[in-house]
Amino acid sequence: MSTQVQTTLRGPEAFGLARKAVEEMERAGVWPTPLNFELWLHFLGDPDGALGQEMTRLLKAGDAFTEGTAEMLAAEYLPRGRLSEEIRDAGAVLNRELSTVSEAIAKAQRSQAAYGETLAGASAHLEGASEPTALLGVVSKLTKATTQVQAENATLEKRLANSTKEVARLREHLEQVRRDAMTDALTNLANRKAFDEELLRACDEAEKKRQTLSLAVIDIDHFKRFNDTWGHQTGDQVLRYVASVIGRVSKAPRVAARYGGEEFAIIFPTESASAVEAALNAMREEVGTRALRRRSTNDELGAVTISAGVAQRRPGESGSSLLDRADEALYASKRGGRNRVTNGERMDEAA
């Protein structure tokens, strides 16, 4: 949540912003779910922010604001707050664990020091002791001190073992939170934030190693028609279906993401545009072979087709430039009648 929105929600304007959020959602035909309400508060509280700009774009384009859209926006623009909260919570637990372990170590150190003093005293007593009773007293004192040190060490070992388990649990939990923050909730593919970071990393690696790198952008043909004809839930069903095919084809080291709305992107490390073109055509054919049915009524939805464009990275080229060229290839597929793959390298050769 931006500082601007936080300030507004803690001041006298909070109630007005909340009322406006409900009014705007009603005007846009969006249900006032908790997630939608949170998104609209951010949108109206900071319209020039990243989330505000994206929501403005979606609303102006007339795109349906579905549950999937809300989840995608939340995953992309709201996870930082959640992640920060999780990190703060984990930090508090870790601090408690460290404090407890420190106390246990300090106690064990004091016990060891006392044991050393007992040994020193016992040594002095033994030198002058000649009576069995005196010797028995020294041995008894040593036995008691040894038992106490062993107990303290056992407690410390148990505390350290428990802390190790707790730290491992925290690490696993935070890793899951990180994965959630980088995953599109509707399709389980990477979200746009994760894609942007991976594209930057992939371009840097390709430049350093002088390797081939290709990028594909994919769009579901006439997706708005599915939403308008069958409703948003059916549209989400179509999105999940296409994403499942893309996910099967895009095993590591390939990286697939839901880039926005009905658009997807795939990074192909070390693969040429011609090899990627063949993979995309196989994907396109698989998507078109299945006859989808509406879950609630079992009505046939008709053919689902996809269009795609692919571009191969040039030496020194940035991720944004590569993405622009892949987008140009995608638009060429749409202009050419859709349900096809356009290789941007062939476009450049023809030009």
Rank of each mutant, 00 (worst) to 15 (best):
A329S: 14
L322Y: 10
A311P: 13
S307G: 08
V341N: 06
L330D: 03
G309I: 06
S321V: 15
R314T: 12
K334H: 12
T305R: 15
T342A: 03
R325L: 07
D327L: 01
Q312K: 08
T305M: 01
I306W: 09
R338L: 03
E328V: 00
G309F: 06
R314C: 10
S321Q: 15
L323Q: 10
A308C: 15
A326V: 03
S318Y: 02
L323H: 11
R325H: 14
A308R: 04
A311Y: 09
L322E: 11
V304P: 10
Y331E: 02
E317F: 07
A332F: 03
G316M: 11
G309P: 06
G344P: 04
E345R: 04
S307L: 10
V310L: 07
R346S: 00
G309V: 05
T305D: 01
V310Q: 08
P315E: 10
S333Q: 09
N343R: 08
A326T: 05
Q312G: 15
R314F: 13
G337Q: 13
A311H: 10
P315T: 12
N339M: 10
G337D: 11
V310D: 02
E328A: 11
V310N: 02
G309S: 07
R340F: 08
A329H: 01
E317R: 09
G316N: 10
Q312S: 14
A329E: 00
S307A: 06
V341D: 02
S307W: 13
